[in-house]
Design a protein around this nucleic acid. Structure first.
Lengths: 340, 340
DNA sequence: ATGAAAGCGCTAACAG
DNA sequence: CTGTTAGCGCTTTCAT
């Protein structure tokens, strides 16, 4: 059904080998034959068969991403769609495909990586939701697979990391709140086993301590709306409740915003709130949310580029640091009420 | 590096062909040899090479999904992550992989499908965001690719459709509002070129007409938050504004909810609102949103199953209808204020 | 019931 | 410089 290099070779009156050379732009052919071959290929409508290339070159021409996430947290995840869209954009420019898998937990994730490699489905992978002590790094090393990680784990990792500095905007958020007059600033953090969960908490604590304030108003969550709301209630129920809350993502911030309002508090009058992600709906909350704008698409694009470069040997293995996300001040933050 | 069937054949003292037969459970081998071969394969840790299987069987063992969507609408899309998670779950059970692509528009989408097929990357595809007169159907027919569509287009299509009846819950929503005493019920609909955009509008209009009410309060949007807000403002600015609004998705409903509240209206006292999707945050809006619960994961699972069955010839080509989603009544709907 | 051998479409080492 | 040829790992037909 499809036209192969044998057909092209016959049409151009050369051997398959010559066609392969011409198509891959390798030296060893006269310009005349090269052009004749390329012409023939073009007029015959030849397209390379990834299947055949894969087998003979032992490469998959695909890269994989395994998302380890409980299904329930998937639908409200605003990072993931944009991120993979960015990844895929870069891949398709270079004739690579994106193979996606889902695993409910870390165990399933490891198995997924093993299967992907053994079946020869992928040449490299992108590790998202990196944990500080991430077992996947060892697994991939063991499998001999190329990889990039999103952020750098504390465990030594030979893989280049594409890093987003979330300290800077969190610091900016805390300083913004301090400047407004807040003294009791809480943090509703995400899973601390994740690098991005811990680093945000760390930035929050550091900024407070630098200002001589205690960093004792903290609760860990799973980044989900329900646990964000629960954390908020717990914090506001303390003897000395916060006047401002820094959330690790917009989802928790907005869910909590609605919850505290339903319970009679006014935002920002009684309570200031900041989010993280600048999701679409953060500007449509009431009041619009002060948050941090990250660029997931760009992160995906860069990650894919580094991985591809690594596969073709043109990356030196060093980390890449993305532009730090900016704090976007909207109306969910204001001076604390006692100041008024 | 990896163990192949030749290795297994040698170890078991048989030919490659015999190994292939044993592994694929085909008749023509004595039970004794079969067991000996399977044992050898297991102890040697043999795994099939998808690459080799692909080449020799001319199958990709992968299915594709091309998302035609402007990047900006991607991040707030709650359907997509759950849907592909469902798809992938089913695929991996049957040793198939999911290949994902993104295209900014219909043109790019067509090109993407063509490339996927010509490169031999996929055996079939799932068509999402189906349009009424969807050019992709013709393209796929032309390419000879297997496919399933999400919902049935008006254009004749030979591909089985996996359908979600969104008429029933929209009808339920309208009847719920009518029962509460509303008489001017608007619909903020999504892109009408999409099957699911049109069918929701149709259900809304039909339910109103059945009750003897005019279905004249309608505005079309692109399903995005911004255009949902704009549509709402337009509707509320009319001479005879609605007392209730039925939105085509939660995103527009929640963004508009915040917007009307910011402009001094109370929900549900002055205005009732319903959404569609039952996204995570719909229960955390203030007030919690009356909406329609769809099961994107299940939709994905079923779609993948039908496609796979079709590939192995065990599906009869008929459509599959999913359980109709249910209306979830929360606190964003109440009797209109003049009734009080 | 079992085994040999010819592809699948391409790459790359080798000979001319 | 150009062409020939032997794989890559598996499926499948055809003898045995």
């Amino acid at each position: 059904v499809a036209v192969t290099i044998s057909d092209v070779a016959r049409a151009a009156g050369v051997s398959k080998g010559a066609v392969s050379f011409a198509l891959n732009g390798r030296p060893g052919l006269s310009d005349e034959t090269r052009i004749r071959i390329l012409d023939a290929a073009a007029t015959m409508g030849w397209t390379p068969s990834v299947r055949a290339k894969s087998l003979s070159s032992s490469k998959a021409y695909s890269i994989g991403i395994v998302f380890e996430r409980p299904p329930a947290l998937l639908s409200s995840d605003t990072f993931f769609p944009s991120f993979i869209a960015g990844v895929e954009t870069t891949l398709s420019e270079r004739e690579y495909a994106l193979v996606l898998q889902f695993a409910p937990d870390a165990d399933g994730g490891e198995r997924a990586y093993r299967k992907l490699v053994r079946a020869g489905r992928v040449d490299g992978v992108i590790l998202t939701d990196l944990r500080d002590d991430d077992s996947r790094v060892g697994v991939l090393l063991d499998l001999g697979l190329a990889a990039v990680t999103l952020n750098r784990p504390q465990t030594p990792s030979p893989f280049p990391a594409v890093r987003l500095d979330d300290s800077e905007p969190i610091t900016a958020a805390v300083e913004h709140l301090i400047a407004l007059g807040h003294r009791r600033i809480a943090h509703v953090g995400g899973t601390q086993a994740f690098v991005h969960g811990r680093s945000r908490r760390h930035a929050w604590a550091t900024a407070l301590e630098r200002a001589g304030l205690a960093a004792d108003l903290f609760v860990e969550t799973d980044f989900g709306a329900a646990s964000g709301v629960a954390a908020t209630r717990e914090l506001l129920g303390r003897a000395n409740p916060p006047t401002a809350l820094v959330y690790a993502n917009d989802l928790m911030a907005i869910a909590s915003l609605a919850d505290v309002q339903a319970r009679g508090m006014r935002v920002p009058d009684d309570l200031s709130i900041t989010g993280f992600d600048n999701t679409d709906f953060s500007q449509y909350s009431n009041p619009p949310l002060t948050t941090v704008a990250t660029d997931a698409v760009e992160w995906g694009r860069v990650s894919a580029r580094i991985l591809l470069d690594q596969l073709q040997g043109s990356h030196d293995g060093s980390d890449v640091v993305l532009a730090p996300p900016r704090l976007i001040v909207r109306s969910s933050t204001a001076p604390p009420s006692q100041e008024r």
